[in-house]
Amino acid sequence: MALPLETLLDTVSARIISAADELTALDSAIGDADHGLNMKRGFEAVQADKAGIFAKPPGEALKAVGMTLVMKVGGASGPLYGTLFMTLGKELPENPSVADLGRALQASVTALKARGKADIGNKTMLDVLGPVAAHLESGSASIESVRALATESAKATIPMKAIRGRASFLGDRSIGHMDPGARSSEIMITAVCDVLEGKP
């Protein structure tokens, strides 16, 4: 399928920007109260750069989105989401199958693990991105099942004790709160599902 890149990016940006307060509130509980502010700044910059970004071929456009996030977000989420988009740009073929999507996302997850020295189960965005990548790669994914898995996986970070990220400084006190990065990943994946399903 040909990905409607521009619509995807607009929807992801809009959803993240309008969820900024929620993400910051989650980060207040176990972090430093800026995840929503960071993500909003990043996607506002992506929107401001759109003309330049979409002048490029799709792969390069995705890399440019990643680079914009790296240069505008800062914090932990900047390099991580930046790496995610840059890797997707490198790995996605022109007209990807679902399995291609899975492979590219899996490659991104591998890159993220290396960048952040983290693993699945550490109570981070990886706990949403990792399961979704694996599910896509499995070949049995539907839009419905991906959406459900993203939501479930974000929720599953609530009882986890953080091993990585700022929440790890809290030790046991990190238990009982959803990881803000897991929630922003869920929001992005849900946005992609909605666009692919034809919902605005």
Partner: peptide
């Protein structure tokens, strides 16, 4: 200097 409580960016 990064944003408040946010690391600066590589640039």
């Amino acid at each position: 200097p990064g944003q408040v409580f946010t690391s600066p960016t590589p640039d």
